[in-house]
Design a binder for these strands. Structure first.
Lengths: 225, 225
DNA sequence: CGTTGGCCTTAGTCATGGCTAAGCTTCTTC
DNA sequence: GAAGAAGCTTAGCCATGACTAAGGCCAACG
């Protein structure tokens, strides 16, 4: 309906891809959004004309206004996810898709109501920070490799490297996808595998696999659900 | 996005217009949906082809399957309204618009979660009945408009239409909410206002307002409290 | 009767936001 | 230096779901 929605979808993608530390280009956005490259190309031109971003050497950079807009969209998205999880018990793996579907229909005002009802949360159930209203939210946590995660903590997966397609396919088959979370159980000694739990199942991951996984260690106070 | 959404919007309109006791025709639907007549015409043909409705003498009748589909859509809509009101404190006059915006994004499953969280409510905040899952929900006795109420009688309000958000906000501010009752004092002549008493206060209601109010005329023997 | 007005449909247009095909740089590789 | 391969853009197409214009039908009324 409104042209806003499409713009916002792309702004959010830019914000998120940037947050993964990946270069923000036509191709990466097309892959992220699951659309063809020309669609991205068109939209980027329009967003550039609207003064929301600039491009240099193929890289997309949000302008200050673009950043504010994108952060507001991401903020809404993460508030929706948090609300769906805490108020309606939607399981974490379903959150992203559900929130995506709802995003267009949730006004700023409604998001503010959710924020209030939730007690002004600072992180969503994936462990991603919720930008504050009116800020650029650019202090996004940079993802670190799972290798660095201490055991006994939850780890929020934001990225699975595609360097090893077969290996990453296996990880995905385990439920280790961007947006999922796993519990870091224990590290076997002498270079043994890392034991993690995903969706209640326990898996031993070799270094090869562990090195493909990036994300954020969730704050310790979070209780395992 | 999906073609479902449009079909569902029209099915819901048919269900609701029928519920008001108005004839379900291209014109009334166009007015209700605020679209041009040909748009309705096209969609009706498609819904007819899909076996969801039939037409006789200009009147639209839902088939059994159409009825089920429509009731499911209405059910979702009213669950959303109830949820927005009870869980997030969205004021009644804003409910319809907010729910409309969300409807496309709310899956059956999510609606079921809302239903559960709300304790399986039977009516939405407008006083409209919430069809049960899997039923046609059309056996509800629909209330009659206040317009038809004789003067000197008590009228029990079960429903305030959400067609005119500002007008219904005013009615609510007067205390004319579902569950309230008013005394129909007198009808001023020559199309003048209808005088009603609510909570001991006397108000003159224009036709615009009166037409938004539905309920049940209380039996005459009932003594004014 | 014939005209007028309401109602509905058919025909054709437009905006949106995807898509594929194809061309153009540029960077690598032999 | 030529040949590819990536990545990006341009050009042109399609589906959806609105719209306006215009015509058919019918009933009421002068």
């Amino acid at each position: 309906m409104s042209p806003q929605n499409t713009d916002e979808r792309y702004l959010r993608a830019i914000f998120q891809v940037r947050g993964l530390g990946e270069p923000v280009t036509t191709t990466t956005l097309a892959r992220w959004l699951d659309v063809a490259a020309p669609s991205v190309s068109n939209r980027l031109r329009r967003l550039e004309d609207a003064g929301l971003l600039s491009r240099a050497e193929g890289e997309v950079r949000l302008t200050q206004e673009g950043n504010l807009r994108a952060a507001a969209v991401v903020r809404r998205h993460r508030l929706i996810e948090t609300f769906l999880h805490r108020a309606l018990g939607v399981p974490v793996p379903e959150l992203h898709e559900s929130a995506e579907a709802l995003q267009d229909g949730v006004s700023e005002q409604l998001a503010a109501r959710m924020d209030e009802a939730l007690g002004y949360p600072t992180h969503d159930p994936h462990g991603d920070p919720i930008p504050q209203a009116g800020t650029a939210g650019d202090q996004e946590a940079w993802p670190e490799p799972l290798t660095h995660a201490p055991s006994g903590r939850w780890f929020s997966v934001t990225r699975i490297s595609d360097r090893e397609p077969e290996a990453s396919a296996y990880l995905i088959s385990l439920g280790l996808v961007p947006g999922s979370r796993c519990f870091v159980a224990e590290r076997a000694p002498f270079g043994g595998p890392l034991w993690v739990e995903v969706d209640g199942a326990r898996h031993a991951l070799s270094d090869t696999l562990v090195n493909l996984i990036f994300g954020v260690v969730e704050p310790a106070r979070w209780v395992r659900r």
